[in-house]
């Protein structure tokens, strides 16, 4: 599934991007070292963090998109950096668990 399809189907807020990517999996986590080690390229990464280091980790792990859950705040500097590094950042009021249920329903 493409990121734009996901945005439409789940009514996600587009914060940066979308830089069109195909999604193949899901990773959930807020400890950045774990994300570095475990997230796979083309995953969507669900987190509560909205700071610049999230953009760096997303770029390094090559995730398809970051989805900030529970409408957590996202720093303007992070948005700017995401645009520069072509990292897609989306946001939703949903909790991670509710979002995962919906992602499963969509076949991810």
């Amino acid at each position: 599934m493409k990121v734009t399809e996901l945005v439409d189907k789940l009514e996600l807020e587009v914060v940066a991007g979308p830089f069109e990517r195909e999604i193949s999996g899901i990773y959930v986590g807020d400890l950045l070292s774990n994300v570095m080690a475990r997230a796979q390229a083309d995953d969507v990464w669900l987190t509560v963090h909205g700071h610049q280091n999230v953009v760096a980790v997303a770029s390094l792990t090559q995730v398809a998109a970051v989805i900030v859950v529970e409408d957590f705040p996202i720093e303007p500097a992070a948005v700017q950096k995401a645009k520069e590094m072509e990292v897609t950042i989306l946001r939703t009021p949903m909790t991670a668990s509710d979002l995962i249920r919906k992602l499963f329903e969509l076949g991810l």
Binding site: D30, L31, L32, S33, N34, A37, H51, N53, V54
Partner: peptide
């Protein structure tokens, strides 16, 4: 609070 300092960093260095 930023998601660092959970005591996994050096462990990752050793592991990888």
């Amino acid at each position: 609070g930023m998601g660092f300092g959970a005591g996994m960093g050096l462990n990752n260095v050793k592991h990888y």
